[in-house]
Design a protein around this nucleic acid. Structure first.
Lengths: 213, 213
DNA sequence: ATTGCCTATGCAACTCGGTGCATAGCAGGA
DNA sequence: TCCTGCTATGCACCGAGTTGCATAGGCAAT
């Protein structure tokens, strides 16, 4: 669990209230670590009792008071320790890949609209990243340490979106091709690849193709 | 929640017991959808009571009996319906990105070993994917629908690993560069980028660089 | 002989994370 | 005027998912 650490990083970059953190998790940090305000408030309370962060109540006019949190020395120490721990191997949850494999047992055309929607979303995100890069890192040779680290993370996001976009085009081409090949199956619901239910024929997949996604 | 659907796809590709499914989730399907045996057994029971799958008790010699599950027509129908639902926007949990940003408040060299380990893992996985592609899809023009779908998913995995590998090299170059630049900070623990705790200077990041990862 | 691993299934307890709802003052538009 | 939306924090509940443990026979190696 790294939400504590994501919050610590965010608070080190700039102190803020739970509400402000929640909005940051909708924008910046949220691109690679999501969290709802509920979770953030709960974790903030725990971190405070653990001494990782310190609070300051700030009265405001025209809007409710807020609690501004800052990273405390124990929090920094915890972060430093965390950086030296082994990286856990990222639990993967790639829903689209499951759906693509599922389409073998249904109409390939059924998935096309959703893949296109997905594709457009990634295209928009890539455009946003590239715009942000132009704005924030116009001179990549004159950056301090923190900016260089932010830039390398951003480059990762850009390359990921580029790669995903190209792959989704590949997927779409494949789906269109398959949908065009068997026009008769277009209207049918399930049960088309195999004769009926149960075991499918030509099922050599278990140990070969299924072994590598 | 798509574990049901991942299991359905796996059972359609080949019927099997909970234990067999668990092992598949360690290898093939597990590359893009992880699950422990506990979860699988629980979900299998629920799917069975819902009529999505059917069971057959199989006695074995020399090892415990097993329950072999197969996808039933209602399961196929549920899968077809799922394929037409909107794709939920993938909750991102990219721990390494958080760590890279965290390193701005600690020693950049501290992260290098873990990034290298990570890099080697991705290199090994890429090699495995490429080997699997050679083995299972030597003639990409002569594939049936299911194989073509499996191949396009595999291509996605390959491109993802290629991209990740290049990016991790980029990250390593950046970290080495930063670690070489401030040799004085090498041995220090936390608290080096900013003067002490609290708010860091040059904190224009909140709305600019922080806005795009 | 004992240790450890593999097959095969399952219970119990827990944490993590998300949804829905509540409060409460203020601002702006229909 | 009413409705919506923003700031700001929080409770209660539920489902998903993990960890630890249990059982139980058979196999292989030390």
């Amino acid at each position: 669990m790294a939400l504590e650490h994501a919050i610590l990083v965010s608070l080190l970059e700039r102190p803020g209230s739970g509400y402000e953190l929640a909005r940051r998790f909708d924008r910046s940090i949220g691109r690679f670590w999501t969290a709802t305000h509920q979770q953030i408030y709960r974790v903030l309370r725990r971190m405070e009792t653990d001494g990782w962060i310190s609070v300051e109540e700030v009265a405001q006019d025209g809007r409710p008071d807020k609690k501004v949190y800052s990273a405390a020395p124990p929090g920094r120490a915890a972060l430093a320790g965390w950086l030296r721990e082994p990286v856990e191997p990222e639990t993967v949850r790639h829903e689209l890949a499951v759906r693509i494999r599922a389409v073998a047992f249904d109409d390939p055309a059924a998935l096309i609209p959703e893949v296109e929607r997905h594709r457009d979303g990634h295209a928009a995100l890539l455009a946003r990243y590239l715009h942000g890069e132009q704005r924030d890192f116009p001179a990549p040779d004159a950056l301090d340490a923190r900016q260089r680290l932010q830039h390398v993370v951003l480059r990762g996001g850009i390359e990921y979106e580029r790669m995903t976009l190209a792959w989704l085009d590949d997927v779409l081409a494949t789906l269109h091709d398959l949908a065009g090949a068997d026009v008769d199956g277009r209207s049918a619901g399930p049960a088309r690849t195999g004769p009926a239910g149960g075991t499918d024929p030509a099922d050599r997949t278990g140990g070969s193709a299924a072994d590598t996604p």
